[in-house]
């Protein structure tokens, strides 16, 4: 983990109520997809945890990866007062903790990994897909949204050459239905999922084989000190922020 100051390069609305924030600074601790950063906001006591969507080492201005400098991109939904405040910042500096959480384990992917995102939970799939492709895998992504105006990352994933299936609840884009409906029958070697709890709970009932899920919990610190974010697993009590947010499907105790 590292505490450092990042410069806001860009903070714009890219979908309904969803913003893309590009931050320039020391990205050396961001080593795995599925990790998150914790952003301090003026006037708010707690930091806001947001997943890394992608990282550009060396940065847009090519400072050189050796310097640790780069750009981290996060995608966030305005969900309350903190994210609303964040969406109003157009430039300036932010104090950010980087390198938080375990992230996805790409060594398990196999040749045909399946990436599943629900709404804003699709955000980490960008870096994950890029890393998997670098490794020689051929990922498929299934992303579910409520409607076409919420769709994110479709263009970015297509550009990477990822086969991308979009599902919308209202049928305004792609397949009509949920991510769980859209992923049925897609052949895969392993899966990675991130999204709201009800969505994770519905996809796990239709998914076959092994995979991992990324969870959310209210956090006091984000780096393992307060045990505010505990979760019971088959391997004992874990901290979502430090032992997670990604957990193997095998260790999760589902509620129903």
């Amino acid at each position: 983990m590292k505490e450092s100051i990042f410069e806001i390069l860009n903070n714009t609305e890219i979908a309904d109520n969803v913003y893309r924030l590009d931050l320039k600074g020391d990205v050396s601790e961001i080593v795995r997809p599925g990790q998150f950063i914790n952003i301090a906001l003026e006037g708010f006591f707690l930091r806001r945890p947001i997943s890394v969507s992608n990282v550009y080492r060396g940065g847009f201005d090519n400072a050189g990866p050796e310097s640790g400098q780069g750009v981290v991109t996060v995608l966030y939904k305005v969900a309350g007062k903190g994210t609303e405040y964040l969406s109003g910042l157009k430039d300036g500096m932010l104090n950010v903790l980087t390198g938080l959480g375990n992230g996805f384990d790409i060594s398990k992917a196999g040749s045909r990994p399946l990436l599943i995102g629900g709404g804003i939970g699709s955000a980490p799939m960008h870096m994950l897909a890029a890393e998997l492709i670098k490794k020689g895998a051929a990922p498929t992504a299934v992303l579910g949204f409520r409607g076409s105006r919420e769709v994110i990352l479709e263009a970015e994933l297509n550009k990477l050459g990822v086969r991308t299936v979009i599902a919308t609840m209202d049928g305004s884009k792609g397949i009509k239905g949920t991510a769980a409906d859209a992923l049925k029958g897609i052949d895969h070697t392993y899966f990675y999922a991130c999204g709201p709890m009800p969505m994770l709970n519905s996809i796990r009932k239709v998914l076959e084989g092994d995979g991992e899920y990324s969870f959310e919990e209210r956090m006091g610190c984000g780096f393992g000190a307060c045990v505010g974010c505990s979760m019971e697993t088959k391997n004992g009590v874990k901290r979502v922020c430090k032992d997670g947010p990604v957990f193997s499907g095998k260790e999760i105790i589902w509620k129903d």
Binding site: F44, F45, L46, E217, R218, M219, G220, C226, V227, G228, C229, S230, M231, E232, V237
Partner: peptide, 20 residues
Amino acid sequence: RYGNPTPRIAECASGMINSV
């Protein structure tokens, strides 16, 4: 002890509330 069920962290002006 596992403590209390989550969510067990809340925020307020200049502070936080925990029920760990």
